[in-house]
Simulated scan of single mutants.
Amino acid sequence: MDEEPRNVKDLLVEAKDASELMVDLAYAAVFFDEEKLAQEVERLEERMVEHLRRLRTMAMLAARSPEDAEGMAGVLWIADAIEQIGDAASDIARVVAVHLGLPDALRRDLRHADEMTARVKVREDAAVIGRSLRDLSLPTETGMWVMAIRSGTEWEFDPGPDDVLSEGDVLLARGPEEGVNLLRQLAGAPPLPEPPGEDAPPLSELDRAVDILVELKDLSEATVGLAYSSLLFNNRALAAEVGALEARSDILHDELESWVLRAAPEARDPDELRGLLRLASASESMCDAARDMTWYVEHGEPLHPVVQMALEETEETSAETVVEAGTPADGRTLRDLRLETETGMFVLAVQRGPRWIYRPRGPFMLRDGDRLIAVGPEDGAEELDALCRVAPSPAEVG
């Protein structure tokens, strides 16, 4: 299905796609207590380890002199950061894989707090077999967006409309809870079992714990994604955003640990809270690794020429804007605005209050106060501003 990466650039893109998916799947495994999602994280980690081995080998082979070897330190620095992100995602997934504790009441609230990430295997005689994603129109028919397809040991990240589904394919999709069973029905899979009922008194301030976990998930996705983007675009502004997000992760880590300590006396079994401590620590480690990845970009340090070729500067730039009330963007979806077509700008992330939404999709509706981070041509940034901000009056212009 996919071709093996052949050079440093391809390996970095592969690592980017894999680690972003690992972050999403790891949190989803915890939120929805899905061991099969945790297993997919393990598979992705094995693949990533092999690609990082090749990346390190290429880096060493490219060093022709002591000066080259010193310059290649940047490549190895990036590889180490990628590995740390993968390790942190695996640590989160192991909360489920090794049955560390997590309160059932908290999971019940998490199940409804965010979009679901689902793993669906295409069964024999399923309606989707032999049909392309374009033909199936899954986002329209089910609300679910396919993030990746695994066929045996091969992966297709961010599959396109012409990808055709086959029996045995494993779909990793994201969308509303009600869309999961619709997708499972099309894939010939049985519906999800109902979540267990409540059999223990609720813990105090449970809503705050849910809020922290959801924010940690969103923030981790945004931090990892923006770190890679800062490398791919060699953009210091994006690297600075990663630093700000990493600082926020420290605060959330402290808050979640504090909540666990306060909740322990009320818990039926304090051991049920162990998973939260693991999750808080791994989330912060992930954000720390993403911050480390951006060091060379943030400090304007040159990378080795082989990396500069792989991550060569494009004509694209990053842009930041805030949606203001009454503007064309306020209350409209990204699909309606056709931002990529009309402005050439691709929205990397949206900050809404304390929450971050990384790579928002077409149905995502913008609201007054949303902060957008996008990449694209310089003139596209001005057009994006025109859609999101109130035009100055003639007096202000004068």
Rank of each mutant, 00 (worst) to 15 (best):
P195V: 13
S166E: 14
E342L: 15
W356P: 07
E198H: 10
H112M: 05
L11E: 06
A200I: 06
R56W: 09
P270T: 11
D114R: 11
P270E: 06
H299R: 14
E215I: 00
G369V: 11
V307F: 03
A173T: 12
T140K: 15
T333R: 03
L52P: 13
P139D: 05
R111P: 01
L186T: 07
D2W: 08
P193Q: 05
S258E: 10
D125G: 13
P328V: 12
V390D: 01
L11K: 12
Q39N: 05
V347N: 11
L252M: 09
M147V: 09
I92A: 04
M60R: 09
R262D: 03
A391L: 05
E215A: 04
G398T: 15
V170E: 15
D87H: 12
E141A: 14
R278T: 10
S230T: 09
E320P: 00
L213Y: 01
V260L: 02
P195S: 06
F157P: 10
G376A: 14
L384T: 03
E284V: 13
K16V: 00
H99N: 13
C287G: 10
Q351I: 10
F157G: 11
A263M: 02
P265H: 01
S283N: 11
P392L: 07
D114V: 10
G362L: 07
Q185G: 08
G152C: 06
S151E: 12
G175E: 06
L138I: 12
T57I: 15
A289G: 05
L334P: 02
S283K: 10
V30N: 02
A200K: 07
E301D: 02
G168Y: 05
I373H: 15
D17M: 05
P392H: 07
M1H: 07
G71A: 01
W259R: 03
G130A: 12
A173I: 10
G168S: 07
A69N: 01
R119M: 08
R119A: 08
I357L: 10
E340N: 08
T327E: 00
G326M: 03
R355T: 10
I212F: 07
A240I: 09
V180P: 02
Q185A: 15
S166W: 04
E324H: 04
Y228F: 15
L303N: 01
M147C: 07
I85M: 14
V397C: 05
A79Q: 02
K121E: 15
E324V: 04
L384E: 00
D218G: 14
P265G: 01
K36H: 05
R355I: 03
D250A: 13
A200N: 02
D17N: 09
E4H: 08
S204N: 04
R352S: 03
E255P: 04
D2F: 13
P103K: 12
E40M: 11
A62L: 14
D109V: 12
E284C: 06
A200E: 14
W356S: 11
E46A: 12
L245E: 00
E266Q: 14
E257F: 08
E20K: 06
